[in-house]
Nucleic acid binder design. Structure first.
Lengths: 198, 198
DNA sequence: AATAAATTCGAACCGTGGTTCAAAACGAAA
DNA sequence: TTTCGTTTTGAACCACGGTTCGAATTTATT
């Protein structure tokens, strides 16, 4: 907590004025991160023009970006075990709800014959796992932006489910809309991401 | 350390007779786990009869099984950050070597036109990430064995790379050989896994 | 059986990090 | 300017977990 306070330019006593405990702070950050993910899932859900493959594409892309582009994204699915049960149950519930949204998209794809999946839960966990693990290795100063990593992940992971990958085209990407979805307010970052892509 | 000692049926002083520090114990477990993964990669490498897709399939399957079927598999790629630099560098080197082996298989698949990959490193990290994240959610008492999860992951993740998924068939699985690869000495477990599949 | 080596134990040390709290400082309102 | 509410501080408490070590016990060797 002293380190966190120092990083924020304050002292530990000050930090305790705002958060009763380290657990509360951690849970707060996790909830903030989960909130962004739920926002993502909600925006994707509203995209009725997209079929399951397109929606899943944006879920993967968005997830990777949310986790890696800004603090406290990386806390969304990590360190949950560190919390006492009272806090943890809440985060776990939110997480499970979010996962259910992914699974619903996968299920829809299966129903419509777009996806071929043996077990929807396991298939979803494979994709979420890949996206979550980016927290462990992604570095903002690396070769690729979170956006680029997310996009490649989305292509790869959606293709893993497709019944007919040969005919598949990833959805069109509208950067302004993505910024709204990701709640990004830094247009410099979005243009940098575009420039890096071209 | 007291808990670990208690779990082993000894006291903490006893445990310190064998390991100079908690870091040494952790590194020891991690190296053991990495050793199994390197064994897996080596066995897969010897399978010259398999093309890149088949080899990748067994890498994914084997990785999930190694991490989840027996202690200390789950420590192979986790808690590395917890170690001081001296220890950590060694584990990281072994991990990087192992990852390079995955990447080599992916690279071969690309050369032979089996795989279509924008960035081999990112593609590999997606698959490894999915497999590593199983540590977070897989439960031995769950609905599926590590073997089953690993197999479904392998199908899904390999398909995500395939140039022509429509014609693809996963490799034939020889359980006895897998037991040798995974260094499993429990034939009951392997038969249970087979029975569950059928 | 005696001796040496190996293993185990129990109690204690101690640094780290979570937490507390009275007092000081700051900002807002009257 | 004074008063009140809010924020910040610095020092200290204390539990926890990593670690130590002399003594006791067990095992192996002669």
């Amino acid at each position: 907590m002293r380190e966190v306070a120092a990083a924020c330019g304050m002292t530990v006593g000050n930090l305790y004025y705002y958060f009763a405990s380290k657990d509360e702070l951690l849970a707060f950050c996790q909830e903030a991160a989960m909130g962004r993910l739920h926002h993502l899932a909600h925006c994707v859900e509203l995209r009725n023009d997209l079929d399951a493959d397109g929606q899943l594409f944006f879920l993967v892309l968005g997830h990777v970006v949310c986790l890696n582009e800004a603090f406290p994204g990386s806390l969304a699915h990590t360190q949950i075990e560190d919390l006492p049960a009272a806090w943890r149950d809440r985060i776990v519930s939110a997480r499970d709800l979010y996962e259910a949204q992914w699974r619903a998209v996968v299920g829809r794809g299966v129903e419509r014959g777009l996806f071929e999946v043996a077990d929807e839960k396991v298939a979803t966990m494979a994709m979420l796992g890949a996206a979550n693990w980016t927290v462990k290795w992604y570095r903002p100063d690396g070769e690729r932006s979170a956006y680029e990593v997310g996009e490649q992940f989305a292509r790869q992971l959606v293709r893993g489910l497709l019944t007919d990958a040969a005919q598949w085209q990833p959805p069109t990407i509208d950067v302004d809309e993505l910024n709204r979805i990701f709640d990004r307010d830094d247009s410099v970052a979005s243009h940098a991401a575009l420039a890096k892509r071209n």
